[in-house]
Computed example of a mutant assay.
Amino acid sequence: MRTLVIGTVLLGAGLVALATGVLPGEAALALVDRVWPVLTFVVAVTVVTELAAGAGLFRAVGAGVARRARGRTLLLWGGVVALAVVCTVFLSLDTTAVLLTPVVLAVALHAGLDARPFALVTVWLANAASMLLPVSNLTNLLAEHHVGGIREFVALTWAPALACVVVPVAAVALLHRRELRGRYTVADDEPPAEDPVLLRWSAGVVVALLVGLVSGAPVWIPATVAAVVLLVVTAWRRPRALTPGLVPWPLVVFASGLFLAAEALQEAGLRALLQQDLAGGGPWTVAAAGALGANLVNNLPAYLVLEPTAAHDPLLLVALLVGVNAGPLVTPWASLATLLWHRALVRAGVDVSWRRYVLLGLVVAPLTVAAGVGALVLTS
């Protein structure tokens, strides 16, 4: 509800700027042309993941990971790490926060394990692992056209993406080394899926979507096709699951408001001010500014405001992505995914205090950003 309210306020402010001429009409039309594929992708992939989760796909995958770990806690945690990375890279950080977090918590609690190392690595990877593909993060989708196609994007991001995964994983493994030792009891009787046909269709659609997202086609196209197919199948098998709530209205309004408000601020003079302040700044400066801005405000407006200072150089642009993607590990509001993750923790009764989260983030976030920028500089 807060997301919807804040988004409505930002959207209203942007429309006022448009009506008063602070935001020129040409700039607003250019913004719409740029962001409609992004928002279309967000809506489509959310519909796919919500329907797939309702069909039991994520529960089935989580149960499969638990069985294959064969009672070894560290191996189960490693499976969660791999699952969080794959989910974030291919289905976005918000998908990991909203749909994977409850599954991870349920698996850990069902096995009688301390859920904190599983919860912490999930949220850190939901942010830090969102570097590799354009679809991994809204900021990447906005940056992609400055870099070229998906191949050019991956060629620049693979090394910082890997570095940004290694640091938080190593940090959680060190912090919770005692809790990750030992074994747990593997459940022998997993409940069957409510509708095996719908589950199989969901799995097939998601696999096809993953292939489509790395095919080089505009990502909104395979996402929209996957959403339509799964909507049709669900209407056939489980029509009651089709509700207006499948569309992430609060997120759409929030993102639209941020886009419009940030563009208005830049047209009002913020772009020139930042270009002057960051003139001549290298990858380290840009990444630091991105991480600081993300933790002070939020990663999306931080990217939008800083993008003009880095868009002319792909190296600087990826450094900015390192800052706004891997840097938001300190404050709760630094990314929407973090707030969504914490809501899932509260629902599951898992206690990870914001105080502990902030203190750990003050150490891990700078190390992660530094590792990402270092890898970028070394491989460029």
Score class of each variant (00 low, 15 high):
Gly149Ile: 11
Ile150Trp: 14
Arg151Trp: 14
Arg151Gly: 12
Phe153Asn: 02
Val154Arg: 09
Thr157Ser: 15
Thr157Arg: 06
Ala159Ile: 03
Ala159Asp: 01
Leu162Thr: 02
Leu162Cys: 04
Ala163Cys: 08
Cys164Tyr: 12
Val165His: 02
Val165Asp: 00
Val166Pro: 03
Val166Trp: 08
Pro168His: 03
Val169Leu: 08
Ala171His: 13
Ala171Lys: 09
Val172Pro: 04
His176Met: 11
Arg177Asp: 09
Arg177Glu: 11
Glu179Tyr: 10
Arg183Phe: 15
Tyr184Pro: 07
Tyr184Gln: 09
Thr185Val: 15
Thr185Ser: 15
Val186Asn: 04
Ala187Asp: 15
Asp189His: 12
Glu194Phe: 04
Glu194Met: 09
Glu194Leu: 13
Asp195Cys: 03
Pro196Cys: 08
Val197Gln: 13
Leu198Phe: 06
Arg200Asn: 07
Trp201His: 07
Ser202His: 04
Ser202Gly: 05
Ser202Asn: 05
Ala203Asn: 05
Gly204Ala: 11
Val205Tyr: 04
Val205Thr: 00
Val206Ala: 00
Val206Asn: 00
Val207Ala: 15
Val207Cys: 11
Ala208Ser: 13
Ala208Asp: 08
Ala208Cys: 12
Leu209His: 04
Leu210Val: 14
Leu210His: 09
Val211Ile: 08
Val211His: 10
Leu213His: 02
Leu213Val: 03
Val214Trp: 10
Val214Tyr: 11
Gly216Asp: 07
Pro218Thr: 00
Val219Ser: 10
Trp220Gln: 10
Ile221Asn: 00
Ala223Asp: 04
Val225Arg: 02
Val225Leu: 14
Val228Cys: 08
Leu230Ala: 02
Leu230Trp: 02
Leu230Ile: 03
Leu231Met: 11
Val233Met: 12
Thr234Glu: 06
Trp236Asn: 08
Arg237Trp: 10
Arg238Trp: 12
Arg238Gly: 00
Arg238Asn: 12
Arg238Asp: 10
Pro239Asn: 12
Pro239Cys: 06
Arg240Trp: 11
Arg240Leu: 12
Arg240Phe: 09
Thr243Leu: 13
Gly245Ile: 00
Pro248Phe: 09
Pro248Met: 06
Trp249His: 10
Leu251Val: 14
Leu251Ala: 14
Val252Ile: 13
Val253Glu: 02
Val253Ile: 08
Phe254Thr: 01
Gly257Tyr: 07
Leu258Gln: 01
Phe259His: 05
Phe259Trp: 09
Phe259Gly: 00
Leu260Tyr: 05
Ala261Ile: 01
Ala261Leu: 15
Ala262His: 07
Ala264Pro: 10
Leu265Trp: 14
Leu265Gln: 05
Gly269Asp: 08
Arg271Ala: 13
Arg271Glu: 15
Ala272Glu: 15
Leu273Asp: 07
Leu273Ala: 13
Leu274Arg: 05
Asp277Thr: 14
Leu278Ile: 11
Ala279Ile: 05
Ala279Ser: 14
Pro283Gly: 03
Val286Asn: 01
Ala287Trp: 08
Gly290Leu: 06
Ala291Arg: 03
Ala291Trp: 06
Leu292Asn: 03
Leu292Thr: 11
Ala294Asn: 04
Asn295Ser: 10
